[in-house]
Nucleic acid binder design. Structure first.
Lengths: 126, 126
DNA sequence: TAAAGTAGTTTCCTTTTGGAAACTATTAAT
DNA sequence: ATTAATAGTTTCCAAAAGGAAACTACTTTA
C-alpha cells in the first residue's frame, strides 16, 4: 500500500516535470512563424528579404517581430553588414542550433505524413 | 556556371521540401494545447477530466475542441466506457505514437533549457 | 531625377483564439 | 431531494495574433 502510493507518486511527478519541460519549449517556440524561421536558418545564414521569400506567406511585420523575439531568447544572432545597400544577416546561435533535433524530427514526420496522405488519397480514388 | 546553378537549384529544392514538411507538421500540431495534450497522452491513456487536471490551465471548451481535431487527424482514439458515471478514455493511436520522437526532443530541450536559465540566474546573482 | 532594392516600422483593421460561466444530461451517493 | 462527479456544449465576450498597405531612410543604378 505504502509502496504502491510511492510508485504512483514518483510516476506522477515524472509526468509533471516532463509536461513542464514541453511547455517551456513551447513558450520559446510559440507564434505562427518561429519554427519555420528557425528551420530556414538551420540551412544557413539568411538575410531579411531572403527569409521573407523563403518562409511562405510571412509579412515584414511578423518576420521582424519574430526575429526580435528569437534574438531576445538567444537563439539567433543579427549582424549588420556594411554593404552597398545595407544588409542584415540572421544566423542560428550555438544555442539555437540545439533546436536542430526538434526541427529534424518535424521534417521527418512531415515528410512521412505527406506520403501517408497521398497514399490514402490513392486508395480512396481506386 | 551551369554546374554551379544546378547545384544551387538542387540545394534550394531540398530546403523547400524540408520547409514544407515542417509546415505540414505544424498544421497538424497547431493550437495552444495540442502538443501538451499529446504529451500527456504519451504517458498513457487519460480520461477527459484527467486531461483537464494534467494539462495546466486548459478549459473544457478548448480541451474538447482540440481533442476533436486530434481525433479527426487520426492521432488519438476516443472510447466511451459504460461505467457507472460514463467515462471516456482518450489514447494515442499508432499514428499518434509516431509523434513520440518530436515530443521526446521537446522534453529534452525543455529540461536542458530550464537548467540553463537557472544557471544563468545563479551567475547573475553572484 | 526617378526607380528599385535594402531593412525595417507604423497604422489600421480583421480574424482567430481562447476563457468564464452557465447549461445539458446521466448516474451515484448522501 | 440535494449534492457531486462524469463529459461535454453553448453563449458571450475580451484579448491576442496577424495581415495589407503605406511610410521611413539609405544607396545604387538608369
Amino acid at each position: 500500500m505504502e509502496n504502491k502510493n510511492t510508485k504512483i507518486s514518483i510516476h506522477d511527478e515524472g509526468c509533471k516535470v516532463k509536461l513542464r519541460a514541453v511547455q517551456d519549449t513551447l513558450d520559446i517556440l510559440k507564434g505562427k512563424w518561429k519554427i519555420s524561421i528557425i528551420s530556414s536558418l538551420s540551412f544557413g545564414k539568411r538575410r531579411f528579404m531572403e527569409l521573407q521569400r523563403e518562409v511562405d506567406g510571412i509579412g515584414a511585420k511578423m518576420l521582424s517581430k519574430e526575429l526580435q523575439e528569437l534574438e531576445i531568447n538567444g537563439l539567433i544572432s543579427r549582424t549588420v553588414c556594411d554593404t552597398k545597400p545595407i544588409t542584415v544577416e540572421y544566423e542560428l546561435s550555438d544555442y539555437g542550433k540545439t533546436l536542430q533535433n526538434i526541427i529534424n524530427e518535424m521534417i521527418n514526420w512531415g515528410l512521412n505524413h505527406r506520403v501517408n496522405i497521398v497514399e490514402n488519397y490513392k486508395s480512396h480514388a481506386k
